[in-house]
Amino acid sequence: MPLHTLPQLSQLPAASWDALLPTPQPFVRHAFLSALEDSGSVGGRSGWQPSHRLWYDEQGRLQAAMPTYVKQHSYGEYVFDHAWADACRRAGIAYYPKLLGAVPFSPVSGARLLGEPHAAARLLDELSAGLPGEGLSSLHVNFTTPACDALLEPRSGWLPRLGCQFHWHNRGYRDFQDFLDALSSRKRKQLRKEREQVAGQGIEFDWLQGHQLSEAQWDFVYLCYANTYHVRGQAPYLTREFFSLLAERMPEALRVVLAQQHGRPVAMALSLVGGDTFYGRYWGCLAEFDRLHFETCFYQGMQLAVSEGLARFDAGAQGEHKLIRGFEPVITRSWHLLLHPGLHAAVADFLEQERPGVLAYAEEARSYLPYRQG
Results as ranks from 00 to 15, higher is better:
269 A>W: 00
374 G>D: 14
143 F>Q: 06
221 V>I: 13
100 L>Q: 10
181 D>V: 09
265 P>A: 10
227 N>E: 13
125 D>H: 07
218 W>P: 00
94 A>L: 11
284 G>S: 02
311 A>E: 06
91 A>K: 12
146 P>R: 05
357 G>A: 12
46 S>Q: 06
308 E>I: 01
107 P>N: 10
48 W>T: 02
255 R>M: 03
25 Q>A: 11
125 D>T: 14
2 P>M: 11
89 R>L: 14
49 Q>I: 11
103 V>T: 12
250 M>C: 13
343 L>M: 15
223 L>P: 00
214 S>F: 01
241 E>I: 03
23 T>H: 13
164 C>P: 04
326 G>L: 02
7 P>Q: 13
345 A>E: 12
157 G>C: 07
70 V>C: 11
24 P>I: 02
177 Q>I: 08
43 G>S: 05
112 R>T: 10
277 T>S: 14
47 G>D: 04
59 Q>W: 07
227 N>S: 08
60 G>K: 09
303 Q>W: 01
37 E>T: 05
350 F>C: 06
52 H>M: 06
121 A>W: 08
209 Q>S: 14
258 L>W: 01
312 R>K: 11
53 R>I: 08
190 Q>W: 07
367 S>Y: 05
121 A>E: 15
309 G>A: 05
302 M>S: 02
118 H>S: 15
224 C>T: 00
306 V>D: 04
190 Q>E: 15
257 V>W: 05
348 A>S: 13
310 L>T: 02
218 W>L: 14
359 L>A: 07
245 L>D: 04
58 E>L: 07
130 G>Y: 02
301 G>T: 00
19 A>V: 03
10 S>E: 14
109 S>Q: 09
340 H>I: 05
355 R>L: 06
253 A>S: 12
269 A>H: 15
374 G>N: 14
297 C>N: 02
368 Y>C: 08
348 A>F: 04
230 H>E: 11
231 V>Q: 15
206 D>E: 15
194 E>M: 10
174 R>S: 12
112 R>L: 11
346 A>K: 05
111 A>Q: 09
129 A>P: 03
206 D>N: 04
179 F>M: 11
30 H>K: 06
42 V>K: 05
124 L>F: 08
298 F>Q: 03
278 F>Q: 01
335 W>Y: 14
224 C>M: 00
134 E>T: 00
281 R>A: 08
150 A>D: 12
324 I>F: 10
292 L>C: 02
302 M>D: 00
285 C>T: 12
374 G>M: 13
79 V>F: 10
285 C>R: 01
215 E>R: 13
367 S>A: 14
304 L>F: 10
97 P>H: 09
324 I>E: 13
245 L>Y: 03
74 S>T: 14
14 A>T: 03
118 H>N: 13
170 N>K: 03
154 P>L: 07
93 I>P: 07
320 E>S: 08
369 L>S: 08
166 F>M: 08
341 P>A: 05
272 L>K: 01
194 E>I: 08
15 A>P: 02
167 H>Y: 08
215 E>F: 01
44 G>F: 09
38 D>S: 14
37 E>P: 05
198 V>Q: 00
325 R>N: 08
345 A>V: 01
153 E>A: 15
95 Y>W: 06
187 K>F: 02
357 G>M: 11
154 P>T: 07
161 R>E: 06
92 G>T: 07
29 R>Y: 04
372 R>I: 04
137 S>L: 06
273 V>E: 04
246 L>G: 01
115 G>T: 02
94 A>M: 11
347 V>T: 09
88 C>M: 04
